[in-house]
Design a protein around this nucleic acid. Sequence first.
DNA 1: CTGATGTGTCAAAAAAACGTAAAGAGGGTG
DNA 2: CACCCTCTTTACGTTTTTTTGACACATCAG
Lengths: 232, 232
Amino acid sequence: MTDNEEALVLLIEDEAQIRRFLRAALGAHGYRLVESTTGEDGLVQAATRLPDLVIVDLGLPDLDGVDVIRKLREWASVPIIVLSARGQERDKITALDAGADDYVSKPFGVGELLARMRVALRHASSAKEPDQPTFTVGDLKVDLAHRKVFTGDKEVHLTPIEFKLLTTLVRYAGKVLTHRQLLKEVWGPPYADQAHYLRVYMAQLRRKLEADPARPRYFLTEPGVGYRLASE
Amino acid sequence: MTDNEEALVLLIEDEAQIRRFLRAALGAHGYRLVESTTGEDGLVQAATRLPDLVIVDLGLPDLDGVDVIRKLREWASVPIIVLSARGQERDKITALDAGADDYVSKPFGVGELLARMRVALRHASSAKEPDQPTFTVGDLKVDLAHRKVFTGDKEVHLTPIEFKLLTTLVRYAGKVLTHRQLLKEVWGPPYADQAHYLRVYMAQLRRKLEADPARPRYFLTEPGVGYRLASE
DNA sequence: CTGATGTGTCAAAAAAACGTAAAGAGGGTG
DNA sequence: CACCCTCTTTACGTTTTTTTGACACATCAG
């Protein structure tokens, strides 16, 4: 549905054949993939790469797959899909109760696996909400998620270009951005030399967001170089 | 295993035999059960009883099970487990993408089903559940479950597209949705560039729901970007 | 002092985006 | 078949945004 693509998937699987198979299938659907062939390594990879989804085989050479799940669940809430040759009900129940989110028996269809992955990722994305990307300096507040800008407690309306310029500055807050960098970023590469646009829109932003536009507190000019957004 | 028990389960299943079977199995594990034998009734039960989990058979006499899922997903985030005699991969993918959380093929083991139910309930409880099936801003009220819309206390009739557009906005209330997002969500991906439709239907919604359509309080335009439904 | 350059401001012109009404096209239902 | 409801499409006036040009000012070098 949404473009949850390019999610990072950790595959813990010892059979080379299945790895190759999934590498192709997942790659074709835009997922990024990390592979492990052992449970131990899988746990390390999970901790270091922080994948969005883990697919784990139950029949690993070193650890039992269920132990991998338990160890993972000690700290991670990442969705886990079990892949297994064992179709025994007992195994399924154990794995699911250990913390797995789904269980797919081999041989499986790629389509089904992908669909179940989408379900798992759907859960993950709806679960983690408390991420409120909002930037603040002084009494200037930028709420990226809601696309809202405030000075003090008054909301200020920005046009698309104004907003894009502002967010670019926010992204590199504290650092100087050259005219060319800003123009390429906001208007696109062909406009890299239209320094005039920048002055007009910078003035616009100051007029809307600075208490005293003539004496900017936030939108600072670096003469001959570019602009900088003050940070704390 | 865990005491996720006394959860309320809605079973939508026409085969009496399976109903009897599950009634016993779930009862023995402490679940409370509501039964429906048709899709229509199932939807009504879901709206009135607000179950913690829905188990739905794909082969219902009236509606297609997948349609039941879609209708349910228009307003509810309750976990849905599909039970089906059809083991075709195509069916699984369709059901999962329609919003189901799991798919169990008949014949199935009770143990496995119970384990998958525990997984589903685990998800539901971890995901914060401020899931009131009714949304309110000012004197605009949207009852997702009953598919009804009110301004003040007068009910307003909406066409299917109008309603879907409204619910999409409701789902992301406060956030700006781009034209493309709305079009893909409401009309489907192929319509992502028909920004036209949006204006027509937005005007429609405002005419029906705003006190002064020319001065919208709820349906706000972000010129060059998209639309936003005011929140609080 | 003077002219060149980089910068800030303003406002008109041009372009793009938006709102609205209304006509045409299906698609069901009685 | 005729009717009603909804969706699609077109047309046109209005609003908002972007672009453009003109000008003032400051700084700095010659």
